[in-house]
Design a protein around this nucleic acid. Structure first.
Lengths: 242, 242
DNA sequence: GCGCGCTTCAAACAACCGTTTGAGGCGCCC
DNA sequence: GGGCGCCTCAAACGGTTGTTTGAAGCGCGC
């Protein structure tokens, strides 16, 4: 059978990756989905090539082998996620710390549960958590660390100046932990609570809960650190979030 | 070659699992380590049997197949972790909800970060999260769900009777999410905060933070749900945890 | 037209995996 | 002691996997 061919009208000296939806690009896309869904070992090059509409030998031709294909998929996914999710929230001028916390949480959830193009990026990262590869170091430095300091600034403001670095760090972990929980532990959550869904409006309400939960906790910690509750520090007063 | 045999002096009607360090028990132990280290798919029954000092056919004999072996490993591991770190640390009679929350969190962390015998338990669970196997259904029903309702009872008590089921569910998720975060995202946390360690005393302090963070949040949610903070409901008053 | 790279193809190769088989060892009880 | 379960063993059976092969398709410059 002959597949419709749209490809390969290009000068000799051009880089392979430069052509539009060539076999190589389709392989990268298909491999990303299948690696994310099945893991490196369980994914088969035959499945990948089938989905990409390519021959089995194409993997050996365009990439050296299955391992090299996986490495390039990781870098490709990293690049996609970087340009798709810039870290700054587009809100004007002065915003309260509570509001910024909510914005951070909502954006975090939206990225994680994004059903768009690189939906498999989050899963690839989750797999890196269990079996880290050398590619993780670069990802943490360039992508994750800036988000981390952004959150820690918000948390420190809500905790007040008396909070220790360890307290700030742990509290930031508490916020992020709540966010990633519903993604990383989704199989268990789905079995315990089938009524939980992840449509955009569900994400919005979940973000409100997590931000409200965390703001309440940070306010309480600030108050209790300020010496019992004999005199509640000014910014420790609880406010309705949103 | 003949291995030293200490096994198999038992009446006919006895359950197989009752004998001491028989082939079956050695298989469970070896399979746990290898499944945790390599994942279900990547682990081979030949590796497992080699480490257990057993024949390849032993898996088919004692368990039906590789999948059944994995399922029993999961339940065995969780059972070990549960009885190794029970939540009720020989504490008498009446315990406050805050105290029970702390006990729950600490036991949860201890099970996950335990460096002792079933150290691979946490890794097995983490793998199930991103790559669920059919064995997960049974584990959730028989082992995880009871823990879940236990936590939800504590959370509901701290949230007060006015809390909706959804609020209780999400708040329980917030507590568990904080706990699993440091384990599941350990590669990232280690790169961001190399100073974070997980010795028993670190676990203790981390448990205090998570329980305090959560108790503060639940108290704040209870107060804000009770109509602003014009009149704080009796049990909504924040108490020092521990 | 013709040779020349670049790319794709079907088919096969070699290795490995989970599972099964059938024979036998071993302790136990009648 | 002889039959009977329980358990273990080496060996092989299909099936699947990643990889390789050699031939062919195709555009392009001469």
């Amino acid at each position: 059978m002959v597949r419709s061919r749209t490809a390969a009208r290009r000068p000799l000296e051009a880089d392979r990756a430069a052509t539009a939806p060539g076999t190589r690009a389709r392989l990268l896309e298909a491999a990303g989905e299948i690696f994310a869904a099945q893991g490196f070992r369980a994914a088969t090059v035959r499945d990948i090539c089938d989905r990409a509409g390519a021959n089995v030998a194409a993997v050996h031709y365009h990439f050296r082998d299955k391992g090299q294909l996986y490495a390039e998929v990781l870098q490709h996914a990293h690049g996609c996620a970087l340009q798709r999710f810039p870290m700054h929230a587009e809100e004007g001028a002065e915003v309260s710390a509570e509001r910024r916390l909510f914005l951070f949480v909502r954006a975090f959830l939206q990225r994680i549960f994004d059903a768009g193009q690189p939906a498999w990026f989050g899963k690839l990262i989750a797999r890196e958590m269990i079996e880290p590869t050398p590619a993780l170091d670069a990802l943490v430095q360039s992508n994750i660390r800036p988000q981390c300091v952004l959150l820690m600034d918000i948390v420190r403001e809500l905790l007040g100046p008396a909070a220790s670095d360890e307290r700030v760090r742990w509290s930031a972990g508490s916020v992020v932990g709540q966010c990633v929980f519903y993604h990383h532990s989704r199989p268990v959550v789905a079995r315990l609570f089938p009524e939980q869904h992840y449509a955009p409006e569900d994400i919005e309400r979940l973000a409100e809960h997590i931000a409200g939960f965390s703001a309440g906790a940070l306010g309480a910690l600030r108050a209790s650190a300020a010496g019992g509750d004999a005199r509640t520090a000014p910014a420790a007063r609880r406010r309705r979030v949103r």
